[in-house]
Design a binder for these strands. Structure first.
Lengths: 339, 339
DNA sequence: CTGAAAGCGCTTACAG
DNA sequence: CTGAAAGCGCTTACAG
């Protein structure tokens, strides 16, 4: 159905290879024939077949993006679209398109990624998961396929990755609670599999230690990061009668859920208990009370991730880079009555 | 570098075509050879090259998604990710992947779409723009390339499209204002190029007419839909000294901006002036005051758009369908003091 | 049930 | 500067 390079070649009375060279902007073609061929391409409404091109070229100018869990859930959190926004902005500038897919669990994800990587359909891939011992990551390393990870991976020396300074900012956030006189500070949503939560947890513990506050694991509630509702995690905490005066949640949505339960229990934020989250969701600023949070600059995370990936795709000699995007503490009324 | 069908064929001492038939699950292959070949594929860690497959097959199992304006801007509004979420959920179930790209203006968009459609890289495309006289749409129709549009297009009989019942819900929203005693109801953000705003505008006018309220074009402010800030549009309105008592904005973000200006001008919502928006942004429920809005069910819009597209891709005989997703009026405090 | 061959629409050394 | 030919890794009628 479509017009091919051969049709153009016949119409222009040249060889297909000549037409191909015009497409590739090969400088060895004379201006005259180049113009003749281009004119005919216009007239016949020719569009190069990217698939055929890719097969011969070994490059599609498409990068894959694998979102964690089902895409359905992932997109419910503004964090993911915001990262994608950052990725697309640079990708578009560099002539790359984005192929989005998702996988429900780690096994499906590994298969998906290895199919993508080996299937020739993408030139590189950006992962948004970084679980401990991620099988997808080790597979990509072995295959020497270009990739970058949003979120520090376990084997962080042999991977391109971007992340916030989670340890430091969690330290600062905890210090902020301590400065306000809190001694019983709970930590909600740490997950042994999700490195970003572990980094934050470490920063939290270090801040406690540096300020002579004993660590109490009754104040720690594990969760599946974004999936869990903060309401349930908070309930678990209450049932332990640990009576915290401050709550640090690993995500704003967890914090919202926690506040809901606290309100139902008759506690006022920030008067009776202070609460903070992470990711500075658009809602946080408008929530009642406005929620103290951490701006992670997801846009920059995405942007930098693509840039690392692009460097990996285009350079011949492998080297691994990391990019740390500074997170900012945003103090609001939920942890500070005077704001 | 990669293992190919020929490598497998040699190792299994069969013809490449036999290997191919195993891949395609062709039933005419004996159980014995099938198993032998599958075993070897596993051992040699074979992954079919999707590009080569697509070239021979004329199908990639990828659908394109073109987001309006720069993707960067589009993703700032939760509406777009929510549509994508709907698209991906069904796409994933049907084994399709999503290729996202964007174009800054109509010209770039037309080129992009025609490249995608003719480049063999996608099996179909979903458009999220529906401008009046959209050149991309007419191009796709001419090329007989499968596509679906989110938002009613101009030539709505020869296109697969999904949309809300914008006319009806705008009518209801306007009636809601009228029932509350408003007679001077402004309309913010109608754009002569964007059909969805025109449909809403028509519903608004019809409600006025049915209730004996004269239409006053001093109360209408044009805007570029989502791009414009409501603050500026509201300023234009104020400068005309039209003194409305109610404001209908074509999008919640326009409404937020408008309320900002009103507040600065010393007017209270809803006491002095009532304001409503569209799209029921997550913020709307938490805004102060909570904003009356219209839930457009973006997830369902995306889901249905993909389903229409899939039907178009898989069926041989062309037919055109539409899908109307009911929008719901969500009355909140910004238009009703008693809520 | 399996194989040999042509083809999908390009690219790219190799010649000239 | 241009062409003939082989190749990218598959699929699929056509034979047998």
């Amino acid at each position: 159905m479509g017009v091919t390079i051969n049709d153009i070649a016949k119409a222009a009375k040249v060889a297909p290879s000549t037409v191909s060279r015009v497409l590739a902007n090969n400088p060895r073609i004379s201006q005259e024939t180049r113009e003749k061929i281009q004119k005919i391409m216009k007239e016949m409404n020719y569009h190069p077949n990217m698939i055929a091109r890719s097969l011969a070229n070994k490059s599609t100018k498409i990068v894959g993006l694998v979102v964690p869990g089902t895409t359905e859930k992932a997109f419910q959190h503004p964090f993911i679209p915001e990262i994608i926004r950052g990725i697309i902005s640079v990708a578009h500038k560099n002539g790359y398109k984005l192929l989005i897919s998702s996988a429900a669990d780690a096994k499906e994800e590994k298969k998906l990624i290895s199919d993508l990587a080996n299937g020739g359909i993408i030139d590189g891939v950006i992962l948004m998961t970084s679980r401990l011992n991620d099988p997808a990551i080790s597979g990509l390393i072995k295959a020497k396929f270009p990739f970058a990870v949003v979120g520090r991976p376990a084997n962080d020396d042999s991977v391109n990755w971007v992340d916030n300074n989670n340890y430091a900012v969690a330290y600062d956030l905890t210090k902020h609670f301590i400065d306000r006189g809190h001694k019983k500070i709970a930590f909600l949503g740490v997950s042994s599999q999700v490195i970003v939560t572990l980094d934050r947890f470490d920063g939290y513990k270090k801040a406690l230690q540096d300020n002579g506050i004993p660590f109490d694991d009754k104040l720690v509630v594990e969760g599946k990061f974004i999936d869990d509702t903060g309401y349930d995690l908070m309930k678990q905490l209450m049932d332990r009668s640990a009576s915290p005066t401050g709550i640090i949640a690993c995500d704003d949505f967890l914090a919202f859920g926690a506040i809901k339960l606290l309100t139902e229990a008759g506690l006022k934020v920030p008067d009776d208990i202070a609460v903070a989250g992470f990711n500075n969701t658009p809602l946080s600023d408008h929530f009642i009370p406005p929620l103290t949070s951490v701006e992670v600059n997801a846009y920059a995370l995405g942007k930098n991730a693509f840039e690392l990936l692009l460097a990996d795709i285009t350079s011949d000699n492998k080297s691994f880079s990391r990019s740390i995007v500074p997170a900012e503490l945003i103090i609001r009324n939920s942890t500070d009555k005077n704001i």
